[in-house]
Design a protein around this nucleic acid. Sequence first.
DNA 1: CCGAATTCTTGATTATTATCAATTGGATAT
DNA 2: ATATCCAATTGATAATAATCAAGAATTCGG
Lengths: 232, 232
Amino acid sequence: MRVDDLPEIRQLGLFASMSEEHFEELMKAAYLQNFPAQVELIGEGDSADFLFFVIEGCVELYGTANGREGVLALVRPVGSFILAAIMSDAVYLMSARTTKKSRILMIPAQNVRDAFEKDDGFARSIVVELAGYFRAVVKEYKDLRLRTGVERLANRLIKYHVSQGASGKVKLPCDKKTLASILGMTPENLSRAFGTLKAYGVSVDGGVVTLGDMKSLTVLAKPNPLIDDPST
Amino acid sequence: MRVDDLPEIRQLGLFASMSEEHFEELMKAAYLQNFPAQVELIGEGDSADFLFFVIEGCVELYGTANGREGVLALVRPVGSFILAAIMSDAVYLMSARTTKKSRILMIPAQNVRDAFEKDDGFARSIVVELAGYFRAVVKEYKDLRLRTGVERLANRLIKYHVSQGASGKVKLPCDKKTLASILGMTPENLSRAFGTLKAYGVSVDGGVVTLGDMKSLTVLAKPNPLIDDPST
DNA sequence: CCGAATTCTTGATTATTATCAATTGGATAT
DNA sequence: ATATCCAATTGATAATAATCAAGAATTCGG
């Protein structure tokens, strides 16, 4: 498949200030592929051979240790992942799998590093991208470290609510099993956390959650822009 | 105080490929200051006015939310902190305080950003630095998410043991209160975790820990280079 | 439509961690 | 030396979360 069909890639912050020539070169080396759901694209510990972009669908980044597994993030269109491993020329720290049928752009690591050496605009864009990644993980860390499960859920609901237009209803972006893992809890405890939030005006109907008492929910959640606001 | 007295700064990866001229410029704008212990250098939410380097002493990075506080990392000579906030021109996500008498180099954020624009080598070095930061936080996240307190302690002891020459003894790098916070637990639970590790050959005498049965300790800890090895 | 598989929920129990309280021990200052 | 402070430990209890088990609800393929 030709990559030229993807103007959204060219528009990405990462490539916006890259020269046309270098961009062409990168795209010539790139692969665009469709994957079914539940395909493991990379495994932690593998050497970083490709930089990935999610064009369509959704990819889950997760880690394993001591017999446990946890999802760190979902990547949706158009997002990249594991840029840091590429720039460090190191192994991946996280595994990645598709959660549904997905279209993925893969750029060989060496081409990315070559472009980084040749193209100053690209190098600077990578700084901005990595700084944003870093700050996002720090926020995840604080969320996990400083809040209980119920608080994490409450804040996540408020966050989704805002990003979806604050209509009073929230559409969950994934199934509850995955949401639980994103929030750092088991599915059982997510169910119970929803139960706890009933007293704060939260009612659940399948994948749709109604926030009926924002005031008391907010008192419980204590939302914090330094954790919850993706733009800070 | 003159910054020229600090050849170790020039040697840092961050500045190694920077032009002499731009480095001079940066250093001219920089402040070198001595702080006593327990001084709050920055507070989370403050706008990022300076990039910091620890020249001597030690600085603790910590975050607060929902009435709780947690240490994310200790920065020792010669390390920098909050580069990501500077490059994102955003507020600090973490607070920082000295844990002992420390000498700190501060470079105004705008000068750093100017140098980033002008000096391509510097821009590329920042990428490497940020990628390393990112990977370090991901490892912290996995450690916290996928391990129990006892496992975290066991792995930390093994890590210190290796970095200190694997003599069978480990000198703790800070008081136990701080260690507890770094490990994401309370001081009480750190005491109990040490108690649990007695059965695995670990004995504590003040700040010195003896590892008497590496084999069983390792079985318990299940060390993982993708979390514990700072060089991967 | 049915049946199989899976997700989701709920209950009971256990594990892990935090909190509160009391005490010990060492360091320091007067 | 004595008093004071604070880190560290220990015990008791409570909060939080994980695990195991069973059922209910939902999805999916035929």
